[in-house]
Design a protein around this nucleic acid. Structure first.
Lengths: 199, 199
DNA sequence: GATGTAATCGGACGGTCGTTCGATTACAGG
DNA sequence: CCTGTAATCGAACGACCGTCCGATTACATC
C-alpha cells in the first residue's frame, strides 16, 4: 500500500483537479493557493505536504493536463476497430481531442488557458512535455496521409499546428452545446480532407 | 488643444501600450500596476489620473487591442487594388491578421493572451466589441464565397471561428521568423480554398 | 488500545497588490 | 512674471499573497 492508493495519493489527485479548475479560471498569475486549498477542503498549509511550492503544483498540473490530453486522444483513436476506414480513425481523433478539452474536469483545458502567461522556467519545462502530445497528432496525420485521407498540399507540421490551434481555441467559445462540438468536428475533418486538383 | 493631442492624451496612449505588454506577458491576474507604471516612466499613483481603476485600464486595453486588430485587418484588405483577383484580397486579409497579431506593439496580442482568464464582467463587456471584429472576417469570407474563392462546404461562421482560432494560436508559437508566418498564411489560404468534388 | 508516523491545522512572517489622497511640480494663458 | 489648473508624486491603508513551522489530529500497525 505504498505507491498508488494511499491517502496522500488520493488527496494529491484531488488537489491537482481543483488546481486545474483554479488555473483554468484565473490563469497562472491570478490563481490563489488559498482558494485552491479551500476547493479541496484543505487549509493552505496542508498543500505544502504534497507540493513543495506553488510552481511545483503548477508544473504538476501542467504535466497532468498534457498527459490527460494525450491519453484522451490516444484512447479515442485506439477505440476504433482496426479494420475501420481511415476516415473514421481521423474523426475519432478530432472528437477525442475536443471531448478531452471540454471534459468536466479542467485538466486539459487548464493547460491551454494558462500556457501563454507562464513564467519562462515553467514554460520551458512545459514545452518538452507538450512535444510528446504534438507527436501523437503528427503521427496520426502522417498515417492519414499515407492512407490518402489527409491532404498533402500543406507541410504536415504546419497543418498540425493550425489544426490543434483551431481545436483548442474552442475551449474559450464554449457554452459547449454538444451539437456545436459535432459541427466543429465535421468542419475540422473537411479541412483535413484531400483536395482534388483545384485551379 | 482640447481633445486629441494634449499631454494627458499622449500619456494615456503610452500607458495603454505598456499595459498591453504587461497584460500580454503576465495575463490579467498576474499584471501589476506598479510594473506598468514603471514601464511608462510613472509612479503607480499617477495611473489613477488617467484611469479610475485597474479594471478600467484593462477594459481600455481590450478595446484598444480589438480596435487595433480590426483596423489592421481592414487596412490590409483595403490596400489591395479593387481590380485585383479575389484570392489576393483573401491573402491580404490573412497576412494582415497575422501581422497585426505579431506586431511589435502587443495591442492585439494582449487580447488573445488574457481573454481566457478575464473576470466575468470584463469578459462580457469584451465580447460585444469582439463581435465587431468577427464581423469583418465574416463579411470577407462571405465575399470570398460569392467570388468562388472560399469553400462553401463548411458553415461560414464555423469556418471563421476555426480560421481565427488557428491564426491566433500562432501568437504563442512564435519565435516569429517571418518566413514561418508566410508558411502559415499559405497553409491558411489552402484551407480556405474551395474543394473540387472529392470522394 | 497503545504507539508512532502520516496528514492536517492554525497562525504567523514579509512582501506585493490595488487604491486613496494631500503635497508637489509642470505647464499654459493673461 | 504671475497664476491657476493639469499632471505627477510620495506615502500610507487594508487585503491578499506564497511560504514556513510548531502544535494537533487522523490513522495504520501491532
Amino acid at each position: 500500500m505504498e505507491t498508488s492508493d494511499t491517502k496522500a495519493a488520493r488527496t494529491r489527485r484531488r488537489i491537482l483537479d481543483v488546481a486545474a479548475q483554479e488555473l483554468a479560471e484565473h490563469g497562472y498569475g491570478g490563481a490563489s493557493l488559498r482558494r485552491t486549498a479551500a476547493a479541496a477542503d484543505l487549509k493552505v498549509g496542508s498543500l505544502y505536504f504534497h507540493f513543495q511550492t506553488k510552481d511545483d503544483l503548477v508544473a504538476a498540473t501542467l504535466v497532468d493536463g498534457v498527459e490527460s490530453a494525450r491519453t484522451g486522444l490516444l484512447a479515442a483513436i485506439e477505440a476504433v476497430p482496426h479494420d475501420a476506414p481511415p476516415t473514421e480513425r481521423l474523426r475519432a481523433a478530432v472528437v477525442g481531442h475536443l471531448d478531452t478539452l471540454h471534459a468536466s474536469d479542467a485538466r486539459a483545458a487548464s493547460v491551454v488557458r494558462m500556457v501563454e502567461t507562464l513564467p519562462p522556467d515553467l514554460r520551458a519545462a512545459h514545452v518538452t512535455h507538450e512535444r510528446r502530445f504534438a507527436r501523437v497528432w503528427l503521427d496520426e496525420l502522417q498515417r492519414g496521409q499515407a492512407a490518402g485521407v489527409v491532404r498533402t498540399d500543406i507541410p504536415v507540421r504546419v497543418l498540425r499546428d493550425l489544426l490543434v490551434g483551431a481545436l483548442n481555441s474552442t475551449s474559450t467559445t464554449s457554452p459547449a452545446a454538444n451539437k456545436r462540438l459535432d459541427d466543429i468536428a465535421d468542419a475540422a475533418l473537411r479541412l483535413l480532407a484531400p483536395v482534388s486538383p483545384s485551379a
